[in-house]
Write a protein that binds this DNA or RNA. Structure first.
Length: 309
DNA sequence: CTCCAGGTCGTTG
DNA sequence: CAACGACATGGA
């Protein structure tokens, strides 16, 4: 990969093992919008909101373009967000060795990366995710952001000319996911008003414990993944699955292996051929895939979606 | 109108 | 400790 910086935009040219669309739309993050008109198959463009920033990005072939950003911002945030320094060639090889059934999906979907998201946003987002479908999760995240998050206006005139933005209105104004401080000012009714439903008290509990300092990102330093999971699960509304998602997506614990209803079905189809408890499946996967279990989970998910249902 | 969605909690056997 | 219904909301 080479980085080209023309003063306005940054291009990651020949960025291997990366597909913007697959990486955003595989269910690991919720704060983004597709902005192009979806007519060109070899092109896609998105607005991504993360890290108190708004980024317009597009991909053509293996070139990823980040618009209206700087090398400082890239190095301070986006490089890590897109997991740029991780060698996916090695990871995929190891996973195929552990599970040959995945060779085909991995070759067909070579560009899925695990994004490095912020802890607090990941925690709240995956509390919301329970018993909801992705479009609805995104809707709640957006409403919370509009209610309490920082407002950012983008100048999209140039991006329209470049066809990076090809959809009407609202795209120029964005709202960041609320910070802890912004969340702490919301009441349970505010959160309910964002359609969080029965998850509202769970979110309140997560915010309360974080504000109080009982469970913060720093609390996990020096803890094993098992210990970190136990700590996360003290939060109301955080069970095994949500905790594993927070570990994997928000705390960089790539050995975490979230088991949802889908993963249960997929693993039963490949390995167990019988009804198997989720904790057994999780233990089996972490044993088999080790430090790459979280990556394996992404490929397994696609494998299952294609094969089952 | 009924059923279910990338779960978790609280209550029963 | 395994099983089971409740829980908000919106879309199929």
């Amino acid at each position: 990969m080479r980085i080209i910086n023309n003063g306005k935009d940054i291009v990651l040219a020949d960025f291997a093992n990366f597909d913007l669309k697959e990486s955003l739309e595989c269910g690991q993050c919720f704060n983004f919008v597709r902005t192009d008109d979806c007519t060109d198959n070899s092109f896609c463009a998105y607005k991504i909101i993360a890290g108190g920033r708004v980024l317009f990005a597009s991909q053509r072939n293996s070139d990823l373009t980040l618009y209206d950003t700087s090398m400082e911002d890239y190095e301070a945030f986006w490089s890590n967000y897109f997991d740029v320094d991780t060698d996916y060639g090695e990871i995929k090889k190891s996973i195929i060795e552990a599970c040959p059934e995945l060779e085909e999906v991995i070759k067909e979907n070579p560009g899925i990366r695990l994004l490095n998201q912020e802890y607090f946003e990941t925690l709240i987002s995956f509390i919301i995710s329970q018993n909801k479908q992705i479009p609805q999760i995104k809707a709640v995240v957006r409403q919370l952001s509009e209610m309490a998050g920082k407002k950012i206006d983008s100048d999209v005139a140039r991006l329209r000319k470049l066809k990076v933005v090809n959809q009407d209105n609202i795209i120029m104004t964005s709202y960041c996911f609320p910070t802890l401080e912004e969340f702490s000012k919301l009441t349970e009714d505010d959160i309910r008003a964002c359609k969080a439903g029965f998850r509202a008290p769970y979110i309140m509990d997560a915010v309360r414990r974080t504000v109080y300092g009982e469970i913060t990102e720093d609390s996990f330093m020096g803890l094993s993944t098992d210990e970190a999971r136990q700590l996360l699960m003290k939060i109301k509304g955080v069970g095994e699955k949500v905790a594993n998602c927070v570990l994997l997506f928000g705390l960089g614990r790539r050995e975490a292996f979230p088991v949802d209803v889908w993963m249960k079905r997929i693993m039963e189809d490949i390995y167990f051929h019988a009804d198997t408890p989720k904790d057994k499946i999780e233990a089996f996967a972490t044993e088999r895939f080790g430090k790459y279990a979280g990556y394996a989970q992404q490929y397994l998910f696609i494998y299952g979606k294609n094969k089952l249902k």
